[in-house]
Design a protein around this nucleic acid. Structure first.
Lengths: 189, 189
DNA sequence: CGAAAATTTGACATGACTCAACTGGAGTGG
DNA sequence: CCACTCCAGTTGAGTCATGTCAAATTTTCG
């Protein structure tokens, strides 16, 4: 566990053992069963989660009852509703475990104290955030220009094995198409 | 000029006069005429730009010749192709001035030196990047769930006055619809 | 004023959605 | 271990939002 976080962090900057311990000990570890919620729509997102193991989805229930998945989170990813976490407002979406999931979680206050004690952590999260922004921009490129079929096949090659871990209707939801239409796409080659 | 950048920066953290001077002097100031390019597709994005005055668009020319605008930049915004800037790879899009535009520009190397000299700047750009990520996530919400008409009226209220500064076909491009269809939307109320 | 650029209009095409019915597994309990 | 239910996935008919293309009109600006 500690090992896993440390290994992740030193990809972004140098830390000494003491710092790594402090970071790890400031987080709390938590396990969630399949279908448990890490965050519920409309409540404030109190934590930034580092996924040690498992799989989660971030999604929102629309007024008409439709579920809309914005992102999946897997091992070694941070997940949170940043807007809610930073501004302490109600979250527009939920985070739910799709498999048994273990995370390290840290509150805003704890993180801010860490920034003061370990300034280089500021840099690490700057870089992580930059990478997330780049990833989202790339995703947008695809969603803006590609049709449903292309998005589907793109997803398959980007995250192979995903179609085994996630039911098809969730993939459709992530791709922003109806399950019926995804079924159609798969049938016609 | 210096005043404008300083005023912007101290919204994110405290700086002393010396630091502010150093930051300002590390940037170079540059003016672009209407239609000038700050960045050309396929070339490496060498600068992060802080727009002092004017208006730019970031867009990409697709294989079929279509132009697709991903974002507009106005006064007091940073603009860059982050992927290209950080990874020093060819940019998938261009940045072009739509009005006479004045910017402060800084290279990756210069910025990294500033991070070392003024560690709190690391925090500032962490926060700026976080805000950009949140903004992009909000934009995505709208683009995923709202139809063309709603996106159009949403844009009008989000950035009023924009429709005067930008030709309609560019608004259509940003909204990801055809100019013909936008014309249609405007006609039917 | 005239040419080029931007916008509008209209006919037609199509990708993707809706809704309802059907199929097929995966539990679950008796 | 069978019968039953429930949920995911499929199919098909009909519809709608938005795109395409080509032409007409209006606006902009040298």
């Amino acid at each position: 566990m500690k090992e896993q976080l440390s290994k992740y962090l030193i990809r972004y900057a140098n830390f000494n053992k003491l710092d790594l311990n402090l970071i790890y000990n400031t987080c709390s570890i938590q396990s969630y069963n399949k279908k448990d919620f890490l965050l519920k729509q409309n409540s404030v997102c109190k934590y930034k989660y580092f996924i040690l193991e498992g799989l989660v989805r971030q999604y929102r229930v629309e007024d008409n009852g439709n579920e809309n998945i914005s992102v999946f989170g897997i091992e070694n990813w941070w997940i949170t509703n940043l807007d809610s976490f930073l501004n302490e407002t109600g979250s527009i979406n939920s985070i739910q475990a799709l498999e048994k999931t273990t995370v390290l979680q840290i509150t805003k206050t704890e993180l801010e104290e860490l920034y003061l004690k370990i300034p280089v952590l500021e840099r690490v999260f700057r870089k992580i955030t930059e990478n997330m922004l780049i990833a989202l921009q790339r995703k947008n490129e695809i969603f803006m220009k590609k049709n449903s079929k292309e998005r589907y096949y793109n997803m398959l090659e980007q995250i192979p094995g995903f179609s085994q871990r996630v039911p098809q209707y969730m993939i459709a939801s992530y791709l922003n198409i109806t399950p019926e239409y995804l079924s159609d796409i798969r049938k016609n080659k």
